[in-house]
């Protein structure tokens, strides 16, 4: 009974009904599920750059965002840089947190759980001996990443833990970070 009521009243601002329809459509038409995402990055001088996203391919057609968006990246003063923006690795951490948070909201909605607040704190440990080429045994990227969720919702701790687990299971960025993938870089 409670679950039924929650199903109707929980509103996290995610249109689960529409998502369900999209899922069905993409199940029935597998080619429509093949997406290609793009970004164009321009050097702005120093180690400062601006990436812009505008178009992507999906649902068997060219698509575009409502408007182009851009994300700038730079490096902080301790790197002897101008610190005009976040570092690329902080953007990666932000992308992970955003992806998991979006998942938490959508899954909570799907399960009829009303969220009141969600905060994800992300930390990544990095040994700069890697990118500076000081120690060949140290990797460039994060040695470890930790995500801590602080969630206030109408649900038990176990239910919230299950939502967080499911958001990892369905997260693109979590997969990108935890699993190897092939990357090709070419000169055009």
């Amino acid at each position: 009974m409670t679950i039924q009521t929650q199903m109707k009243t929980a509103d996290n601002g995610v249109d689960v009904e529409a998502l369900r329809e999209i899922r069905q459509a993409l199940t029935d038409m597998p080619p429509a599920a093949l997406f290609t995402w793009r970004a164009t990055c321009a050097w702005l001088g120093g180690v400062h750059s601006r990436s812009t996203v505008e178009t992507f391919h999906g649902a068997c057609a060219e698509q575009a965002h409502r408007t182009p968006y851009s994300v700038e990246a730079d490096h902080p003063g301790v790197f002897a840089a101008t610190d005009n923006a976040a570092t690329p690795v902080e953007i990666v951490l932000s992308a992970l947190a955003s992806c998991l948070t979006a998942g938490v909201a959508a899954i909570a909605q799907h399960r009829g759980v009303q969220l009141r607040s969600v905060t994800a704190r992300v930390e990544g440990d990095m040994n700069l001996h890697g990118i500076l080429g000081i120690d060949a045994d140290v990797r460039n990227g994060f040695e470890a990443i930790r995500v801590g969720f602080d969630i206030d919702a109408d649900a038990t701790r176990e239910e919230i833990a299950a939502i967080v687990a499911q958001s990892q299971k369905r997260s693109a960025v979590f997969d990108i970070i935890t699993n190897p993938g092939n990357v090709k870089v070419a000169l055009e």
């Binding site: 176990e158 833990a161 687990a165 299971k169 979590f174 997969d175 970070i177 935890t178 699993n179």
Partner: peptide, 13 residues
């Protein structure tokens, strides 16, 4: 994969 903690937590849940 670096997701061992996640799959273990899911199995526990």
């Amino acid at each position: 994969s670096g997701a061992l903690a996640h799959v273990c937590a899911s199995a526990d849940l």
